[in-house]
Design a protein around this nucleic acid. Structure first.
Lengths: 131, 131
DNA sequence: CTGACGCTTCGAGCGCACTCGAAGTCAAGC
DNA sequence: GCTTGACTTCGAGTGCGCTCGAAGCGTCAG
């Protein structure tokens, strides 16, 4: 049907393409209350994504990609939805997350070091055996 | 009952304490074929963990903590179980994992940078508003 | 001898984050 | 006016990694 993208709006398929999320996931995020506000609709009920929506989805993606659980993303979305006045809470939430991510990065890096040692051992074993 | 730890062996409770895994998880790992070989038993059927078992569990933990899926840990265990001669495969598996972990670290770090920017924005918003 | 405890096995259940399928609607092209 | 196909909603299903509970047994303290 080649839905004509309404002025300044994108279809869910286009939004999917630009965000790298599936249409299923985009609908799921909206259903689950992760969007700032419900995505707009055409007269026939099709979703219309604006650039603001995509910007928000990209933020979501960053939070998710750094391991923030959906319920917490939802909490952050709720704060943003409320409007001005709760910046302190938003900041605290993000700083909390940041601290957890840093701890996680440190832990993974440490474990990776040990795995690297193991890799080194196999490499020297193979060198001694080779030819 | 205070099971007397058999000479050079640890009960599952002790193994749990030293590895930080629950007894449930330790049994699950054994059931699922992640251990190098089945853990030994006392005459009454209780598990006896050796230091070698614990060393292996610690390696498991590192692989898991860096995001290796259980099925791949299982593959690695199977290679080790086979004995000498497949060091090349083991090395390849670990190097593959290492590459994925590095990519993951880079991605998370990049996303974290963007989140840090957001944090910075909230901080300056609050500074301007404060007092 | 009795009770409590800590282990045993087995299988079911859970939380998370999607992922998918079915059935229906609507606009456009032929 | 009929077909096509991208969309809609709803609810169920999937994969992962545990996590838990029930039922039973062996050993030790009292």
């Amino acid at each position: 049907m080649t839905v004509i993208a309404p002025p300044q709006g994108l279809t869910i398929a286009e939004a999917s393409e630009r965000t790298g999320l599936t249409t299923h996931t985009l609908r799921y995020y909206e259903r689950d209350g992760l969007m700032l506000r419900g995505v707009g609709r055409t007269s026939s009920g099709h979703r219309v994504y604006t650039e603001r929506d995509l910007t928000w989805v990209r933020m979501l993606t960053r939070l998710r990609a750094t391991g923030m659980p959906i319920r917490e993303v939802k909490a952050y979305a709720a704060l943003c939805r409320q409007g001005d006045g709760n910046e302190t809470e938003r900041l605290a939430l993000l700083q909390n997350h940041r601290a957890r991510v840093l701890a996680q990065l440190a832990e993974v890096t440490e474990h990776l070091g040990a795995i690297d040692n193991k890799i080194g051992i196999y490499q020297s074993t193979l060198e001694r055996t080779e030819s």
